[in-house]
């Protein structure tokens, strides 16, 4: 029971965070005219003679990318974690990558199934379906690569280029707002009131360090560690970011509750009221809204900076 639950919990965190990559994506495209060949994360060659037009996405981040590329009408099914944009709720759901309803997938007669988790890949391929399995992006660069890849195989190169440029400029502008700030703020990023946070080897951890923040969870080996409460108190974060705010997670927490946690009153972020709530799907999901997520964090840094003096 205990072990199974641990596995489940880890899987949950991976799904809701939308990323689990340990290795970088090695996907790339080659080809000429309309025939495109893609090397997936297993190193297997996937051939596209023509753009797919019945797509099932098993990754919330990539569902968002398909929408951004204007492929809404070609998306015939999504996983149950895909929740953005709102219209996605009208799409048939096929479970998630871990508890996939294979029959539902087959029934949709897809000509492409996109997944970031390798669990269901073999079963689907044995049924004669075309599966593109790409590790979740590990950093912003990886997200941009994935967008380009999806643009290439769906014949939406120009749309993809637009989306990529928009994200790049959002991040550029956001970073430039930090130019006057020398200090490296210590940050605690909370995924869950059980004190799960992000490590170095995670998408969010990468964004935090890209913005010059010192992540308290960085010392652990796992990408989503559950850390000791005393580590948070000892490291005294100047910024606390809650991805588990009750606005976004029904069983999450509030700024008031976090401020009242026993022993936390000595923490600088709590003394200065530098506690911020963020929609986790903006930042932890390696999708096309990552530019907005970065903007949010920059807002937090600037606010914390103004409270410093």
């Amino acid at each position: 029971m205990g072990n199974l639950s641990t596995v489940l919990l880890v899987l949950m965190l991976m799904v809701t965070a939308g990323c689990s990559a340990q290795r970088p994506t090695d996907a790339g495209t080659t080809g000429n005219n309309s025939k495109i060949s893609v090397l997936d994360s297993r190193g297997k060659e996937i051939i596209f003679d023509s753009p797919p037009n019945r797509i099932v996405s098993l990754s919330p981040a990539h569902t968002e990318i398909f929408y951004m590329l204007g492929l809404e009408n070609y998306l015939v099914g999504v996983d149950s974690f895909s929740d953005f944009p709102d219209q996605v709720s009208k799409k048939p759901q096929v479970g998630d990558a871990f508890t996939l309803n294979i029959e539902a997938v087959v029934g949709l007669e897809p000509d492409l199934i996109y997944t970031t988790f390798d669990g269901p890949v073999e079963v689907l391929e044995e049924l004669g379906l075309r599966v593109l399995y790409i590790f979740p992006a590990k950093d912003v660069k990886g997200v941009l690569q994935n967008i380009k890849l999806l643009g290439d195989i769906t014949d939406r190169e120009y749309e993809a280029k637009d989306v990529i440029e928009r994200i790049e400029s959002q991040i550029e502008v956001a970073k430039s707002r930090l130019s006057g700030i020398e200090a490296e703020f210590r940050v605690y990023y909370e995924l869950d009131p059980g004190l799960y946070t992000v490590g170095d080897d995670s998408f969010v951890g990468d964004i935090l360090s890209m913005l010059g923040l010192e992540n308290i969870g960085a010392g652990s080996d796992s990408p989503y560690p559950k850390i000791s409460e005393e580590v948070i108190i000892f490291n005294d974060p100047e910024i606390i970011i809650l991805a588990d705010g009750r606005e976004f997670v029904a069983t999450g927490t509030t700024v008031g509750e976090v401020s009242k946690r026993p022993g936390w009153q000595s923490i600088t972020a709590i003394k200065r009221k530098s506690i911020y709530i963020v929609d986790g799907s903006l930042i932890s999901r390696p999708g096309p809204r990552i530019g907005l997520g970065v903007e949010k964090i920059v807002d937090f840094i600037l606010d914390a900076h103004s409270k410093q003096s």
């Binding site: 639950s5 949950m12 809701t16 869950d192 009131p193 059980g194 000791s228 946690r261 026993p262 022993g263």
Partner: peptide, 22 residues
């Protein structure tokens, strides 16, 4: 209750941390 099952899982897995003297 998914995707809100994390708090339940956290609690089910058992632990005595957090909560102070309460």
């Amino acid at each position: 209750a998914s995707p809100d099952m994390r708090p339940i899982l956290n609690w089910l897995l058992g632990g005595v941390s957090q909560g102070g003297w309460d």
